[in-house]
Design a protein around this nucleic acid. Structure first.
Lengths: 209, 209
DNA sequence: GTCTATAGTCGGATAGAC
DNA sequence: GTCTATCCGACTATAGAC
């Protein structure tokens, strides 16, 4: 699962290259189509390198989940910490959607989650890898709920799960829809968010964040 | 993809048994773990039967999607046609969640959608199979939107996609979460729906469905 | 309509040369 | 640290017996 020697510059570069290739293979072929050989083909390196650096294909997939989760958390934490309304939250979500979907990181994640069924190692590894990201989302939602009169009826954990689920499901569906890649549900979500914001404000406590 | 002779009672029974086994295998092993052999093992029949009756493993998976979509449409259409508020819609969704998740049909669908990446046949087959279901959901949403003053800003297609995506994503996540099978986000969703209903009603036209 | 047997391919993983 | 070569198991699909 890890190299047998202390990581050196060149090895780190190779490891990053392998992780890139795995993400690309997941996006292009899906979990059912990834193998050490297809991944190596995508990256133009030797199949045996995967086992040397990551121990197994599953070990490599967990490394993909971990790297992407950390990168995504670092990238969106500043914007999420400044969000003060549902509409602004949807705005960040739209930016995240545009950037991450075109990068393929959401597609790769859905594929790994599908693969986690029936693989305890993958399930646990991905669950752990996702923690920084889910924590960030939950903190944001908790902060927003504190400004509304409905905070007590709505569970942050449930809302976090719902938001995450929505993203994953959108990826699954847009991959299927022949016209899916051109459509995006975010104008509708922004309209809904603006409406809810407007309805909440007159009734909510006027706490200024 | 079809039997070479006119379907007879016993053949129909066998086909149904194979479809059942495929659904079970998808739920237990995921798309990456299904094969003609694992499916046959789940159902206790011979592997070659799959190719005789469905032509290929992918052909069988499309048959699973089609049967489940039709069954689900017929089962929930009456309840969905009677829904007159967001809260009631979430109530039906909760019943659907309880019944279909325990049946494994949503898990099977997410796995097939994951498998549709990189398989044009699977993607098209599932897309077609899902049509009766997505039509039913969209009609329900259109009817509900017509009773609110916000119908014009919210696209039924987008909301249909969002609702469907939410279900699929929840399945992916609850499979991952070690405690996921015991939790359900529906109390939170019902609270949110009740709130939105209450906020909408005073402003909406008092049309009685 | 269902079975056994098998052809041919591809996959995970390791040994050992460099 | 990266490569080639290889073992062996699992897979899809078909042929042909029953």
């Amino acid at each position: 699962m890890s190299p047998r020697t202390a990581p050196r510059p060149q090895a780190d570069e190779t490891r990053a290259r392998i992780v890139d290739a795995a993400l690309e293979a997941l996006r292009a072929n899906g979990i059912a189509g990834v193998s050490a050989r297809t991944i190596a083909r995508h990256g133009g390196f030797n199949q045996a390198l995967i086992f040397y650096h990551f121990g197994s294909v599953e070990g490599l997939l967990v490394a993909v989940a971990r790297r992407e989760s950390e990168r995504r958390s670092a990238l969106y934490a500043p914007a999420l910490r400044e969000v003060t309304s549902l509409l602004e939250l949807v705005g960040v979500a739209r930016r995240l959607h545009d950037e991450e979907f075109s990068r393929g990181s959401v597609a790769a994640l859905t594929q790994m989650l599908a693969g986690a069924v029936g693989s305890e190692e993958l399930a646990r590894g991905i669950w752990d890898a996702l923690e920084p990201w889910t924590t960030l989302v939950r903190e944001t939602i908790e902060r927003l709920l504190a400004d509304t009169p409905y905070g007590e009826a709505l569970s942050p954990d449930d809302l976090t799960a719902a938001v995450t689920a929505l993203f994953l499901g959108i990826e699954l569906l847009t991959g299927l829809d022949p016209n899916g890649r051109e459509r995006t549900p975010f104008s509708t979500m922004e309209a809904a968010a603006a409406g809810i914001d407007a309805l909440l404000r007159p009734q909510g406590a006027a706490t200024d964040g």
